[in-house]
């Protein structure tokens, strides 16, 4: 199916493929389409490993100069965050290459304990002039899919087991979001479809066969991410996740506090202790008023 879909996708013109992919003989399988970009599954390795190609096609309705600048800024913002996170625990002094604007970096003590390296896809190549970015392929299902795939069993034992597994998954989500925030990054669009559940044995390309909730929570789609260490931004990030979770998984909504507990208390979160508590307090304010801060007065 991949071959047929790919060759037609390239002529069939949702957009023109940017070079060098317009002359590539690899296959491209359309995985997802957002408002600004298209995501393809292709390969980018001599070993045949799959990779994800994110293309931001030209927007005909925008002035060409403005379009170029916006595409460039957005693609670079996303790539910089991903590279910065992949350098956690590797980069000396925490400097990000090619960074122009001075971004406030988290204090030493606040830094993620284990870091987010391995919990975000690595950047393999990019071309900000042509509007594409190639990243590592993340195996597995989205967390959204994984939760939907678990059907509550009839027997009480099974129901209890599923509940425990779900809680455990939510705690892992809380930890990974904590790590992200501790690294000075706000995701901007935290939903269960922007999180992958990667099987611990990540080499098995067919994880759909299982309805297990085991696996690493890997964050994807940093297209709306920003770099910030403010409690306000962190709280809004959590609020977005809380609202998204509630509407995507209404039957599991009452389990959401597990995420927040793990975020502020788990050792691996990096937001445990005082900072995490402050963010949760801020979250209560955000709940009262919504995502946007009042600009009146």
């Amino acid at each position: 199916m991949a071959d047929a879909a790919s060759s037609s996708a390239r002529v069939n013109a949702l957009h023109k493929f940017p070079p060098p992919f317009d002359t590539s003989d690899e296959s491209f399988e359309l995985i997802a389409q957002g408002a600004e970009s298209l995501l393809y599954r292709t390969t980018f390795s001599t070993t045949g490993q799959p990779a994800a190609l994110k293309v931001r096609p030209e927007k005909k309705w925008r002035h060409p100069i403005l379009d170029k600048r916006l595409t460039r800024a957005r693609i670079l913002a996303e790539a910089r965050v991903l590279v910065k996170l992949s350098g956690e625990g590797i980069a000396a002094g925490g400097s990000t290459p090619g960074k122009r604007a001075k971004v406030k970096q988290p204090k030493e003590g606040e830094k993620g304990v284990a870091g987010l390296r391995g919990f975000v896809p690595a950047v393999l190549a990019l071309d900000w002039e042509r509007g594409w970015m190639m990243t590592e392929w993340v195996y597995g299902r989205t967390v959204k899919q994984a939760i939907h795939d678990t059907q509550a069993g009839r027997r009480a034992v099974e129901r209890e087991q599923r509940l425990q597994d779900l809680k455990e998954l939510l705690r892992r989500i809380g930890e990974v979001v904590g790590k992200l925030h501790a690294s000075g990054v706000i995701h901007g669009d935290l939903t269960t479809s922007n999180m992958m559940l990667r099987p611990y044995d990540a080499t098995t390309p067919d994880p759909t066969s299982t309805d297990s909730l085991d696996g690493d929570v890997v964050l994807i789609d940093f297209g709306l991410s920003t770099q910030s260490v403010s409690d306000e931004d962190r709280a809004v990030d959590l609020y977005v996740l809380e609202r998204a979770f509630g509407s995507t998984h209404p039957r599991e909504e009452d389990l959401f506090p597990e995420v927040l507990t793990a975020y502020a208390e788990n050792e691996g979160s990096g937001m445990n202790g005082k900072v995490g508590k402050l963010v949760l307090r801020k979250l209560e304010d955000v709940r009262m008023r919504g995502r946007k801060k009042s600009m009146v007065g």
Binding site: S86, A91, L124, E136
Partner: peptide
């Protein structure tokens, strides 16, 4: 590369730096 760790774990970061270079 201004890195503290040299080894397999550094690969992804170094490749990312090459991709981002000049931005």
């Amino acid at each position: 590369y201004k890195i503290d760790v040299v080894g397999n774990e550094a690969d992804a970061y170094v490749v990312g730096m090459i991709a981002l270079k000049g931005s």
